[in-house]
């Protein structure tokens, strides 16, 4: 899948979870910048999984710290 398209779909999904309206860039971190707690992570991951019909296991989540890494991970999975 096209990275730009994936990016814009994920950006739309972040919106309701981005309570402080942080400007999201490639290097934005979920736990640090966006202050996601574990419940928020679960809901957010579920939203992405449903949108792209993929699984992002907790093992994979552990490798994803930034927004850019998430987009890449979704691209590589959704592209399969």
């Amino acid at each position: 899948m096209d990275r730009a398209e994936t990016d814009s779909r994920i950006r739309a999904l972040i919106e309701p979870f981005n309570k402080k309206n942080i400007q999201v860039a490639e290097g934005t971190t979920f736990s640090g910048d966006l202050e996601f707690d574990s419940l928020t992570v679960m809901d957010f991951v579920a939203a992405i999984e449903d949108e792209f019909d993929i699984i992002i296991s907790m093992n994979q989540q552990a490798e994803i710290e930034t927004y850019g890494e998430l987009v890449s991970a979704v691209c590589s999975q959704a592209g399969k």
Partner: peptide, 21 residues
């Protein structure tokens, strides 16, 4: 193993995840 949690007591969320394995 790969670990995939779902929302508490939510059968539909569980099934969706199982289907994607």
């Amino acid at each position: 193993a790969e670990v995939v949690p779902f929302r508490h007591n939510d059968t539909e969320a569980m099934v969706k995840r199982l289907k994607r394995i």
